[in-house]
Design a protein around this nucleic acid. Structure first.
Length: 303
DNA sequence: GCATGTCAAGTTGTG
DNA sequence: CACAACTTGACATGC
């Protein structure tokens, strides 16, 4: 049966993740900085466990963890290591509980680093920052037991083939714990599914198929073909394939289709996915309400 | 309290 | 040239 996934946050369930800014941290001394982020890290992990408990009760078995779970971890002026934090033991223990809980209850965890992670960039500084951020995500993935770190290829810079070559070359710089989790997703502006197939085969990494992006940026592949390519690409990993779905905020005739709607129109959910054993992340503004509604809307079709 | 401006970071396309 | 879009509001400040 289809496994639907929630992305990052809740709309109504009172689980909240906390943040801070580099500007705020720089105003206080180092010991106070470390105390502050320590508390935020621990609070975020405790909230993550509560999130997973709520998901289990509602039979939602996939969750995308938001990137800044450890706030400002890789900022050049505020960076820290877990060992420096006053509550590092409790933090590691809280992460262990999350890892155990998600494994025992078969809840898949994934990470989706932000848009400024660009392995295809011709700018050395951008790639360096990307590697640094991805290594942080690898550490986080190890700690909480996340299977997947999913990113986009990034920019084209006027020459897609060269950009893809740079992506592949920079991929080799990453640690095993990042490479073994990395996946690439088609985007809505530059890289369609067919642009990614050779890259995925060469690097032996899975393709995450976002059908909404494919509808915004179509190519020669049908949705059926892109679905099959996604399924095939995941054979190099043990986990089930990942798909993304969303609906356009203003409809398909209402101008720019890219902004996401509060809920998923069930007609936007591909029929060909109904009987697949895969994970579909629900990218919708109404968050858990949208996942629950989509399950209800599809229940007669996906059993 | 509550309103509002700001928050590290990349790339692309639109108005 | 400013801004929105992209997985996303939440924090920090000033009244």
């Amino acid at each position: 049966m289809i496994r639907l996934g929630l992305c990052c946050i809740f709309r109504e369930v009172p689980v909240r993740f906390k943040q801070t800014t580099a500007a705020a941290l720089k105003k206080i001394g180092r010991p106070e900085q470390l105390r502050k982020v320590s508390g935020l890290c621990l609070s975020n992990l405790e909230n993550l466990l509560e999130a997973l408990q709520w998901l289990l009760q509602h039979e939602i078995r996939a969750f995308r963890v938001l990137s800044p779970l450890f706030p400002r971890y890789t900022h050049p002026e505020t960076a820290y290591s877990l060992a420096e934090l006053p509550q590092s033991d409790e933090i590691v223990e809280a992460a262990r509980r999350i890892r155990a809980f998600s494994r025992e209850n078969d809840i898949r965890l994934s990470l989706h680093p932000d848009q400024f992670n660009v392995l295809s960039s011709p700018h050395r500084q951008v790639v360096d920052n990307t590697c640094r951020e991805l290594e942080y995500q690898g550490l986080l993935a190890d700690l909480i037991g996340a299977e997947v770190i999913n990113i986009h290829v990034g920019g084209v810079y006027g020459d897609k083939a060269s950009a893809l070559s740079r992506f592949a070359a920079n991929f080799a710089r990453l640690s095993e714990r990042v490479r073994s989790r990395l996946t690439v997703e088609n985007d809505d502006l530059s890289y369609s599914p067919e642009d990614l197939l050779l890259l995925c085969r060469t690097l032996q990494i899975p393709f995450v198929y976002d059908v909404h992006h494919h509808r915004c940026l179509p190519d020669s592949l049908s949705e059926q073909e892109a679905t099959e390519e996604c399924m095939e690409s995941w054979r190099c990993r043990s986990g089930e394939p990942y798909f993304h779905v969303s609906s356009p905020r203003n409809g398909w005739q209402g101008g720019d289709p890219r902004p996401h709607a509060d809920f998923i129109d069930p007609l936007d959910f591909p029929e060909i996915w109904y009987k697949l054993q895969v994970t579909v992340d629900v990218e919708a503004k109404a968050k858990e309400l949208a996942v629950l509604k989509l399950y209800r809307d599809l229940q007669d079709m996906i059993v």
